[in-house]
Amino acid sequence: MLPIVEAPRTALHPPRINAPLAARWLETFLRDELLGRRGIARAVIGLSGGVDSAVTAYLCARALGAHNVFAFRLPYRTSSPASLADAALVVEALGIHERTLDITAAVDGYLQNEPDADARRRGNVMARTRMIVLFDQSAKLDALPIGTGNKTERLFGYFTWHADDAPPVNPLGDLFKTQVWELARYLGVPPALIEKAPSADLEARQTDEADLGITYARADAILAQLLLGYSDDQLVAHGFAAADVQLVRRRVEGTHWKRHLPTTAMLTNTAINEFYLRPVDY
């Protein structure tokens, strides 16, 4: 009887990452973008207590030196105290600068005029207020704000437009959430930040996975293949649940606009970024 060697089914695991390799590449990226291109030695990071901003802080400390990293904790009155404590673990571990600025007065200064604002609107105001602070502190410190958004949330549009995505440099934007976790383990991010349920912390007891309706592990495995061009039928044939595939595709296809600059009416043959094309680093 001849042995039969069957090709394995397509793996359903999330995309992997060689963490040391990715860390080295991202450190070089940060040095080139800040020191090489802009001549800026300092980084400003909003430290939320979550894993994304923690990993960003670790990468910046490795690339620029801890003394050049300025972390800001920016709580609103409803923010979880645990988030503040987790952010403090990162500050302590890295020896980076830290300042805590409560944004409650700034946020409520506007929202007191809008008592009917729902949770989504309130969350967006908080996120945009945090960016006002980070950009202003960057101007004060002669530093650059560093973005912390990952690829999964970018693809899901799970962020506040012109807030979380506003910093001019983002090291994690091409890494899925599950890859960020792996990178965090390699970098030595405190386990408490890696093991807790991810949350935007805009509302009490909020978690990303409850908001999204799918775990990051399942979402990332689907996203990785969806981006390669596979159809829903093919993804289901690979072994993914049809409901998960549809959820992921709906979120991606409903948020393309959030991954672009504002739409500008084209009226001439010198329209910026349509005809007049110059790279960002020119």
């Binding site: 995309p15 992997r16 990452i17 060689n18 040391p20 390799l21 990715a22 590449w25 890859q179």
Partner: peptide, 10 residues
């Protein structure tokens, strides 16, 4: 350069 899932090189 791209591709971070493999060995010690991109």
């Amino acid at each position: 350069g791209r591709g971070i899932e493999g060995g010690d090189e991109l």
